[in-house]
């Protein structure tokens, strides 16, 4: 009998620590499946962030290191200098990348660093228990904005793809969503493109993946998917913000 599906070798055969309905697992899998399909698993070095996915190295079957909060792009820049012929990526959440790590991501992008960043935007600090993130939407409740974020008190959410697209450094920027099978397939294509851009030596590639956090959004997994599709994607439009020929 011919198997119709085999689990990628890119994911270690262990249970993840992520909550039911969280899309970290989906994001992990499409990145690792892509590396597997491209024959890059043994040639890849990943950098895990601080946040729920600090433990990504327990699930992703490639050489990995942790980075201090927000510093993954600096760490990856160092790795890249030592191993110019390998594949390097960072995996970062929105508290990590868009708040404390804003300096590192902007400068890595501006330098056109030859690595790929996968940015998980779920609009909340997950691991610390649901505090407001720089990407939390206006009106969204969090443990540090219990009546909903207001512009007066906390300013406006950051749109990272749009911000990075103002720079000349990046080669490829796309925002995708993990809200449906069709969008997940599109997200996987974007992940593949990010690695292709890196392999072609074109420079920095960046994929933002809109993600859910049902636990801290206070929603069921199906409700979280619906919110992501309707509310979150309305503020963070999907699409290619910088394109590269590969």
């Amino acid at each position: 009998m011919k198997p119709v599906f085999t689990v990628t070798k890119g994911m270690l055969p262990v249970s993840t620590s992520y909550c039911p309905g969280c899309t970290h697992g989906v994001a992990h899998r499409i990145i690792m499946e892509t590396l597997d399909e491209m024959g890059l698993l043994g040639k890849t070095l990943g950098v895990a962030p601080i946040g729920c996915s600090v433990v990504a190295h327990q699930f992703m079957n490639v050489d990995m290191c942790e980075a201090a909060h927000g510093r993954a792009p600096a760490v990856a820049s160092g790795i890249r200098r030592v191993h110019p012929d390998k594949v390097v990526f960072t995996y970062q959440g929105d508290g990590d990348l868009a708040s404390i790590g804003m300096g590192e991501i902007v400068h890595a992008a501006a330098r056109g660093e030859k690595f790929s960043t996968f940015f998980i935007n779920n609009g909340i600090y997950g691991m610390t228990g649901g505090q407001m993130a720089p990407t939390t939407l206006i009106g969204q409740r969090s443990t540090t904005s219990v009546d909903g974020r207001t512009r007066e008190q906390a300013g406006m959410p950051l749109k990272i793809c749009e911000l990075l697209a103002t720079l000349d450094g990046p080669a490829y920027i796309e925002r995708v969503s993990l809200d449906s099978p069709a969008h997940i397939r599109a997200a996987k294509k974007a992940v593949r493109k990010a690695f292709e851009v890196q392999l072609a030596g074109k420079g920095f590639s960046f994929v933002e993946l809109l993600s859910t956090c049902p636990t801290n959004w206070g929603l069921t997994p199906p409700e979280a998917m619906k919110r992501m599709k309707e509310e979150v994607a309305a503020y963070y439009p999907l699409g290619v913000y910088r394109d590269a020929e590969v």
């Binding site: 070095l45 290191c65 510093r71 600096a74 760490v75 990856a76 160092g78 200098r81 030592v82």
Partner: peptide, 9 residues
């Protein structure tokens, strides 16, 4: 942190 990445690699 660049030095950390370099050393880790």
């Amino acid at each position: 942190n660049m030095a950390y990445g370099c050393g880790a690699a």
